[in-house]
Design a protein around this nucleic acid. Structure first.
Lengths: 124, 124
DNA sequence: CCGTATCCCATCGGATACTG
DNA sequence: CAGTATCCGATGGGATACGG
């Protein structure tokens, strides 16, 4: 199982790794990355796909992802103005692992809901 | 790439999936799950492994993971009291995908740090 | 040893209004 | 269309102290 050895979550470089995990751990990053997928999309297009994300949070999330080199932002001189977002190669590699997480969540969501209900009943 | 189709991050069942993602997205869950691995561990043992986690947060994190059926909690009648924690089968399946995330973070942390520095310089 | 209770502040993120 | 600015309530999580 751990043929690679455990990640350095507790050794040196731990803070750095946790920084990265907290980037993907905020409320919207995973959703945005999954909806972006391997296709370039515009701001409002992405916004609809990520509903009910607010304009403010989509902007902030994209800014943070751009800063980390996970998405690119391309401004086209047109009227009305048009801005395209896309995953970088690094973003695509992250998409792979994040899809694993999303699929796990999707597969396990019903049983986890049951577990929660059972636990809450049992401990009430 | 998306042979499974995109996860239902925006369809029905979206709230449920996001609930699950937010569980693993909090500050300590990924660390605790990785450090627990496939071996039963005691509270303070886990605490040292997850340093600098506080007692309060380890307790809260384990409680939430137990509620979701991801870890088991076993109290042994001994003195001093002894409590063992272990991943359930569901927890082990989560470990797989979470290790993927941790390894990605570890591999990419240095370049992301560079990207951040470059971005901050460029936009200053 | 294994927790819970309290306090308290920093950050996150929603609502809303405004700009190029 | 694609954002930024401001306000503000909710939540997360650290420090500390106490209990079984």
């Amino acid at each position: 199982m751990d043929a690679h050895g455990a990640p350095e979550l507790c050794g040196r470089g731990r803070e750095l790794v946790r920084d990265v995990l907290e980037r993907v751990g905020d409320k919207w990053s995973v959703v945005v990355i999954c909806q972006l997928g391997d296709t370039t999309k515009r701001f409002n297009e992405l916004r609809r796909l990520c509903e009910p994300i607010t304009q403010r949070m989509l902007s902030a999330t994209l800014h943070a992802l751009e800063r980390d080199g996970i998405v690119t932002r391309t401004v086209h001189d047109a009227r009305p103005i048009r801005v395209d977002y896309a995953l970088t190669p690094r973003g695509l590699s992250l998409l792979d692992v994040v899809l694993g997480l999303a699929w796990w969540a999707e597969r396990n969501a019903p049983e986890i809901q049951q577990a929660r209900d059972a636990f809450d009943t049992r401990t009430r």
